[in-house]
Design a protein around this nucleic acid. Structure first.
Lengths: 128, 128
DNA sequence: CTAAATGCTGGAGTATACTCTAGGTCAAGT
DNA sequence: ACTTGACCTAGAGTATACTCCAGCATTTAG
């Protein structure tokens, strides 16, 4: 699989894939005779997981840290687990705050509805 | 209240408060005889709400849009409500994805624990 | 009254995460 | 063979959201 195809399949731009490689988030892929990158289809799983880390706002630096450990094999399992546990804890906290923010927002929206209703009562346009 | 005090109370740096003013997120406060900003304590409520918008990743541009509507008074209530409803919908989606990501992460962590256990079983250090 | 703290402005600098450009090379279809 | 599209590199540029700096004015504590 060449970079264009991978880009379409994973949703990251070609530039982003090369950028991720440059910063060490993706391992350097093999090259074909013409020097073009050739990706193993397995990379899709990895990119899928990275997408989750990204979606949950893990900074690239931490993702790279994780990727480096992953590249070292199973002996780094504990370190990776600890890294993910830390991240999980942040997410749990984020989830709580999000829940709270959503309910505040809902309250605010209700208040706005009331204001709109009050305005309507003051300025009845329907019968003028 | 002068800017230093407000900064301490609201948790934003002095630079950030001035920056928010510059980009139109905060209205220009009154000035005292010496040209120093003087804030109405009421601004704390507003900053508290902005903090929620920020915490939920509303970009400054949208916050500014909201702030401008707010500055126009009650007649913009409906517009502001719509803006918040849009944001709320995004947050609800984000909440669902977060829930999913959290459970994936938990699964992954469990797998790591198993790998660690397998490694321990292969390489028993305790009795060598 | 004076020194230290606080505040002012305009503009430059930083961090993060891409995104684009120039100037090529390589591959695929006709 | 030739043209078009995909790919290559190094490096510059962009967007967002601050953060810091120089050089000066004002305020406040002793």
């Amino acid at each position: 699989m060449k970079i264009g195809e991978l880009s379409k399949k994973c949703g990251l731009s070609i530039d982003t894939l090369r950028f991720y490689e440059k910063i060490g988030l993706l391992e350097k892929p093999l090259r074909d005779g013409g020097g073009h990158r050739v990706y193993d289809p397995e990379i899709m799983q990895w990119l899928g997981f990275l997408a989750r880390l990204k979606e949950t706002d893990m900074p690239l630096k931490k993702q790279i840290e994780y990727a480096k450990l992953r590249a070292m094999g199973n002996e780094t399992a504990a370190l990776r687990r600890i890294l993910l546990e830390k991240h999980l804890q942040e997410l749990t906290e984020k989830q709580a705050r999000l829940k709270d923010n959503i309910s505040t927002l809902k309250t605010k929206i209700t208040i706005y509805r009331q204001i709109e209703k009050d305005i309507d009562d003051d300025e009845p346009k329907s019968d003028t």
